[in-house]
Nucleic acid binder design. Structure first.
Length: 920
RNA sequence: GCCAUGGUGGUGGAAUGGUAGACACGAGGGACUUAAAAUCCCUUGCCCAUUGCGGGCGUGUGGGUUCAAGUCCCACCCGUGGUACCA
């Protein structure tokens, strides 16, 4: 019988689908295991070979865990809200839901061909109202909670209101937008609107006017992680700064817990480090400076309170509210013009000349609280509005940016930490002795910092604190294709819809564009009001809203009354293994952790962290092929000969190149202008050049998995993608080696058939050597599966197949367990062989074979004998011989005599089962 | 700049401090075949010897620890990814 993968794969894929072989239910008799892939955005381009890399790895692990007796949850779905569908809708008028559904169906078709063990009964898209109902519901909860720093968790806003009524802000320690203080009497005297306005300062989902990343081309606000180098991640359009009223999530309230939680996770160190940097914890002090002739004060954050005697100027960011009030009349014109210029500069422009120093003096002076010295207050772009207080104390001697600024504007530079040469550059090192600083002279940086913090606290002008770089997440998007906010406005204040009114369905609109007055597309919807006639929010939620809690919904995806049931959550708990790309490190993986921690605080999720173990699959890069055209002709030279001509490299579609050899006929047909192409060949072949680049349509290096499945079958594709290299490693996609894996599968198949082609597995008792091959394989595969070392596992299967072929082993006791072992990797082949072996049930329910160490025990071991670390000969000994006897036996050997050459060995080292080393 | 991470044959990549290069691709040679496909066998890190054993050099560079280093330590060079006026 021949290996006809097309038939086998179709047969079993249909069987698994019809029998719902992968349907998963809560089963308290088994331990659970939750394996999740980062679900894809269904783009129009379809699945490319990079997607399945992670899915195959997680599928192998899920199947392995099932074999090990776990009840495995392995769901899949689609992250369906997003910009491309909307932009397509704007161009064509086609509703994004239509495009999204079509794309998702195509993805499903492609995924099905690869033989994944997803429980498709749990599938959903984030744009399904049944699902986004719970995204909206969570948003309402965020609105109704604040972060209590005393209990270190989210609490009901009612508790806060009760506290305000009782004693104002006096006993309140809450995460807040800006510090507020008021008494109970003041609170009680506030009107409804004022109270609501005040509460927004505390809610975990709040509205505030902030500087946002505005992308005019997309007509939309972007989150910090959606902007790279001043350009939008989607589309690469320039991003500006704009002051807008936005919904915001108070992610920063969780900064410390997000940081500490990392320690409990089995994530790679590099990914944890990226998150640590993103959260950006820094210890320092808030210090309040008086401003001369003003009642206003200037608050700053510094990590170097020890350098306070070295402050020679202050700097405010151009957005700072204080500028207007303290600028002196004679400086006003200049300051205004600078501030205007700086504020209107786009992110891109700002990023472009980071090195350029610019700034302007306000004419005002702050007062150093320790020396009473007058310190000029400047405005400069290098101070950012979004970090700390938007104002700094500049210590040019010990900060390179302040140094550059001081040099440029000829401001004094005063050394307060000894150890550097401040005539050349700033001395930023934190070990050194404090000098020129009155009562802290002679102290270390660390000691001085503590003393200053205590002192400012005593003086009532500051305190030691921790500052985070992590920003609150802007949650409004001026788009159509997203979750509508379950919010409406009354007298300008936001209120939430009743939970019973959820889901608030995305309305139909005539066009997916903003209105003529610049309002978001939802403003076009007819009757976009509550039933009492209040206007609904017209923004929608961002892409990360739907993906922040989807893993929880998979636990109980059809629940109509709850996000997920207590029962389901307490069984499945958290994701045990999460597989996906590291590019989500500062976006999705932060937002989900925040989302989950909040749900944990309000008693919904039973685990604080959503993803226990995370594997980052490396990016699959494209491997482009080139042909070399002789300049000005239609003649193409093979790679090895191109230096003899003046050539121009041209991208050629990788699908008409095999092992870097061009299919000339296909090339002629590829483009009309190449129909008459001539070729200069090497050995009758046209060899293409290659380069690793991003996978992209324009480089003709996109490979989709369907072609490969068609040519080699799903099992080969699965094993080949694993064989490419370690799963975490970024690597270029390269089909050059796929033949080898295909050969292996055919060889594996042939183990079960005699020369004539009949299935020929016997019940004979295997020999010891045959058992050894099996048990060696069981051991290695188990180890590799546990380590996610799937590439070496594939090699291990190849070795086993080679050895069993050599042994002509066709025995059930060897070949049957081998089918089970390989079923996680090549499930179709395994299932077919399993049935040929006479099983009625499915290989999917078979247990992982047990390893028996007895079969690996050697009676003799060959020891390499080395002199001074160089191997000279080998000698065989009984496996249980003791090292002293081995030593004696080696020295008595005639080969040893040759190398000893009359010398007495200094030392003889016998490493059990490894090596004998003789030191001369 | 900072943080992370990697550097091993023509290529992808293996190696709990213990015979570096497993496995695979590619290449060369051979068998089978009318031929092709498929399959199988041999060679394949470099250099010398090749009538046989054999010998020397090799994991980015330079040092060090060790009986023994791709692996551990120090310094440097190069690549990749993240991040950047974060006070």
């Amino acid at each position: 019988m021949e290996y006809i993968f097309t038939e086998i794969e179709k047969k079993w894929q249909n069987n698994w689908r019809d029998t719902k072989a992968y349907k998963t239910e809560i089963d308290n008799s088994k331990p659970k295991f939750y394996v999740l892939d980062m679900f894809p955005y269904p783009s129009g381009a379809g699945l490319h070979v990079g997607h399945p890399l992670g899915y195959i790895a997680s599928d192998i692990y899920a199947r392995y865990k099932r074999q090990k007796g776990f009840n495995v949850l392995h769901p899949m779905g689609y992250d369906a809200f997003g910009l491309p569908a909307e932009q397509y809708a704007i161009q064509t008028g086609q509703h994004p839901a239509v495009t999204t559904n079509a794309n998702a169906n195509r993805y499903r078709e492609q995924l099905d061909k690869i033989g994944f063990s997803f429980d498709w009964d749990r599938e959903f898209k984030t744009c399904d109202p049944d699902y986004y109902k719970w995204t909206q519901w969570t948003f309402i909860q965020l609105f109704k909670h604040y972060y209590n720093k005393k209990t270190d968790k989210a609490e009901k806003i009612e508790n806060l209101i009760a506290e305000f009524e009782k004693s104002g802000t006096e006993n309140v320690a809450a995460a807040q937008t800006k510090p507020l203080t008021f008494t109970a009497a003041e609170w009680n005297a506030m009107g409804e609107e004022e109270k609501q306005e005040t509460l927004l300062n505390y809610r975990l989902a709040y509205i505030a006017e902030t500087w946002v990343n505005w992308c005019p081309k997309l007509g939309c606000v972007l989150a910090n992680d959606e902007v790279v180098n001043g350009l939008s991640v989607r589309g690469g359009f320039p991003v500006e700064r704009k002051l807008m009223k936005q919904w915001i999530l108070r992610v920063s309230a969780y900064a410390d817990r997000l940081l500490r939680g990392l320690e409990t996770l089995e994530w790679s160190d590099s990914l944890k480090e990226i998150q640590r940097n993103w959260i950006g914890r820094s210890e320092g002090a808030f210090i309040r400076f008086k401003i001369e002739n003003h009642t206003e004060t200037l608050d700053i954050f510094t990590t170097r309170p020890d350098t306070i005697f070295g402050v020679s100027f202050m700097v405010l960011c151009p957005e700072h509210a204080l500028i207007e009030r303290i600028t002196t009349a004679d400086r006003k014109a200049e300051v205004d013009s600078y501030v205007n210029w700086a504020r209107n500069r786009s992110e891109t422009e700002r990023q472009a000349d980071v090195k350029k120093v610019s700034g302007v003096f306000t004419g005002a002076y702050a007062v150093n609280p320790f020396t009473q010295e007058k310190i000029p207050v400047w405005v400069a772009e290098y101070v950012l509005a979004g970090y700390g207080t938007g104002g700094i104390m500049a210590v040019p001697a010990h900060d390179s940016r302040d140094y550059a600024f001081a040099k440029h504007f000829q401001l004094p530079i005063c050394e307060v930490i000894a150890g550097g040469d401040i005539t050349k550059e700033a001395f930023e090192t934190k070990d050194g002795t404090v000098v020129n600083s009155d009562f802290i002279n002679g102290m270390t940086v660390k000691e001085a910092g503590i003393v200053i913090i205590n002192k400012v606290k005593e003086m009532g002008i500051g305190y030691g604190t921790v500052n985070y770089r992590l920003r609150d997440a802007i949650f409004s998007r001026q788009r159509y294709w997203g979750e509508p906010f379950p919010a409406y406005y009354k007298n300008g204040c936001p209120y939430m819809l009743d939970e019973k009114e959820l889901p608030l369905l995305l309305p139909e609109v005539d066009k997916f564009l903003p209105t003529e007055t610049g309002e978001p597309p939802l403003a076009r919807a007819a009757n976009w009001k509550t039933k009492d006639g209040y206007p609904l929010e017209t923004c929608t939620m961002p892409g990360f809203a739907g993906s922040s809690g989807y893993y929880l919904r998979y636990m109980d995806p059809h629940n109509e009354n709850e996000y997920f049931s207590k029962e389901a959550n307490s069984y499945w708990q958290e994701v045990d293994l999460y597989v996906g790309g590291a590019e989500h490190a500062t976006g999705h993986l932060i937002y989900s952790r925040f989302w989950n921690k909040f749900l944990f605080d309000i008693g919904l999720a039973c685990k604080e962290e959503p993803f226990k173990k995370l594997i980052n699959q490396g990016m699959i890069q494209g491997r482009s092929n080139f042909v070399y055209r002789v300049v000005g002709t239609n003649k193409f030279v093979s790679l090895g000969l191109k230096n003899d001509y003046e050539t121009q490299p041209i991208h050629v579609d990788v699908n008409i190149v095999s092992n870097d050899i061009l299919d000339i006929e296909a090339f002629r047909k590829w483009r009309p202008e190449f129909a008459e192409a001539e070729f200069v060949l090497e050995d009758g072949k046209y060899v293409c050049g290659w380069e690793v680049e991003k996978m992209s349509k324009s480089k003709y290096n996109v490979q989709n998995p369907d072609d490969l499945v068609e040519r080699y079958g799903a099992d080969t594709l699965r094993m080949y993608e694993m064989f490419l290299g370690p799963i975490e490693l970024a690597k270029p996609w390269d089909t050059n080696g796929i033949e080898g894996v295909f050969r292996f599968i055919k060889k594996f198949w042939r183990l079960y058939f005699e020369a004539g082609g009949n299935f020929a597995v016997t019940d004979d008792e295997p020999t010891k050597d045959e058992y050894k091959v099996l048990h060696k394989t069981i051991k290695k595969i188990e180890e590799d599966n546990e380590k996610f070392s799937f590439n070496t596992a594939v090699s291990c299967f190849m070795i086993a197949a080679n050895e069993l072929t050599d042994l002509k082993c066709r025995k059930r006791k060897i070949l049957e367990p081998l089918v089970v072992l390989i079923s996680a990797y090549a499930p179709h082949v395994a299932e077919e062989l399993w049935h040929l072996l006479g099983h009625e049930d499915s290989v999917l329910t078979a247990a992982f074979p047990l390893f028996n160490p007895d079969y690996l025990v050697e009676s003799t071991v060959t020891y390499p004998v080395s002199f001074n670390g160089k191997v000279r000969f080998q000698k065989e000994f009984p496996a249980d011989m003791n090292p002293k006897d081995i030593e004696a036996a080696v020295l008595a050997d005639s080969n040893a005599a040759r190398w000893l050459d009359g010398k007495t060995p200094k030392k003889v080292i016998v490493v059990p089962k490894k090596i004998v080393n003789i030191v001369l």
